[in-house]
Nucleic acid binder design. Structure first.
Lengths: 205, 205
DNA sequence: TTTTGTTATTAAACACTGTTCAATTAAATT
DNA sequence: AATTTAATTGAACAGTGTTTAATAACAAAA
């Protein structure tokens, strides 16, 4: 039955086409200003066709945001070369921040926008695998730090959340332009300076 | 010329009516799902009328978000009773977090959504008075801490940004539902636990 | 009191949006 | 060649923010 497989392959191909078109447009204009009709125009199909491949607009951006997590995770692998867990933890922070500042729209989709999580909530899928894997990676690294005597007396889960919040807070204030006016003079360096200050504190903890 | 004044007053009244209608709807349905027509319906005017009082939709929500800052600032005054600057700093953090969790939609508008800052950018008003005042308040409190010997060797501005980022990170991850699945079992307490862990670190710094 | 000028208000229109659906076309199976 | 299945379409629906020409309301001047 090679035909069914070819059809399956063709269907997957168009699905991929829709996704890359959506990504191109969203990186250029943002999620809100990327319409189904825009995507349809770019791949030269009618708007209605899109709905044979995706349930709705949110599903498209949920699929896109999954790719973002793969991208982020692939950048994380380099930390395996670092033997010291605290160095690994700090390297993770650097990679996270750099990823966010280099791919602000993707980061926005992954951690700030409500669209992908709305989709998770609506499909009653109680898990958000992409985000969970990333958080578990942080937790296990922190656990290794604690096993070596760092951060004694702290709750591992709460501290993981606190660390995540700190880096997320810095980049999301930057991405959503809350620094531009409040810290206008050192706009470009404030996130890096904040991260350095954070690392300093982690070292002294 | 009492007539001109009365007209001015009437105009201001309708402006206020639009604002309260917008606030009611936005707290019930969110910014995106609150339309100009919804607001017009509620105050029993035509949609076009709104545009005699506000340039566009963003200007309405910019005005609303200003009210949010007044609300937040009014809650901050109680810290004046605390003589110790570090206690004041921690109290500020608590108030900030509580405000965010009790008024998630307003916090969203003030610190997460792009709408109000888009308005700032478009009107070429290089300052965002509301946000700046709040940040300056944090900075001055931190400066007092440092004057009393706390946080030695740190850059005051960078540390202010780091502290702001930490509390903002926690509440924004919570508001945008990134905790729900990743930390499902302690959803309700994780922000409080994170804040406690943060205070612990500040004490030991 | 009537005319003039200003301001407020409106309905209608424009160009969009996400989404649904009946009709059409295309392709594979019988 | 006829039938079934799947893909694609254009049109429609109900909504969006915003603009604009016409109208109504009202104060000031003649």
């Amino acid at each position: 039955m090679g035909i069914a497989e070819r059809k399956e392959r063709e269907k997957e191909e168009l699905r991929e086409q829709i996704l890359t078109a959506a990504k191109t447009l969203f990186l250029k204009k943002g999620v809100e200003k990327t319409s189904i009709r825009n995507i349809a125009d770019l791949i030269e199909y009618s708007p209605g066709s899109i709905y044979h491949y995706f349930k709705d607009k949110d599903e498209i951006f949920y699929a896109l945001h999954q790719g973002g997590f793969q991208q982020l995770m692939s950048k994380m692998v380099v930390i395996n070369d670092l033997p010291h867990p605290l160095e690994r933890l700090k390297a993770m922070g650097s990679i996270y921040v750099h990823f966010a500042l280099e791919n602000p729209d993707m980061y926005d989709l992954m951690f700030i926008k409500e669209a992908p999580l709305d989709h998770v909530a609506r499909t009653k899928a109680l898990d958000w695998n992409e985000g969970e894997a990333t958080f578990k990676f942080l937790r296990s690294t922190l656990r290794e730090c604690m096993a070596q005597g760092y951060f004694q007396g702290h709750d591992e889960e709460a501290l993981s959340f606190l660390i995540w919040s700190t880096v997320h807070g810095m980049v999301s204030l930057s991405i959503r332009r809350r620094c531009e006016v409040v810290l206008a003079d050192r706009q470009d360096t404030i996130v890096k300076d904040g991260l350095d200050a954070f690392f300093n504190i982690l070292d002294r903890l």
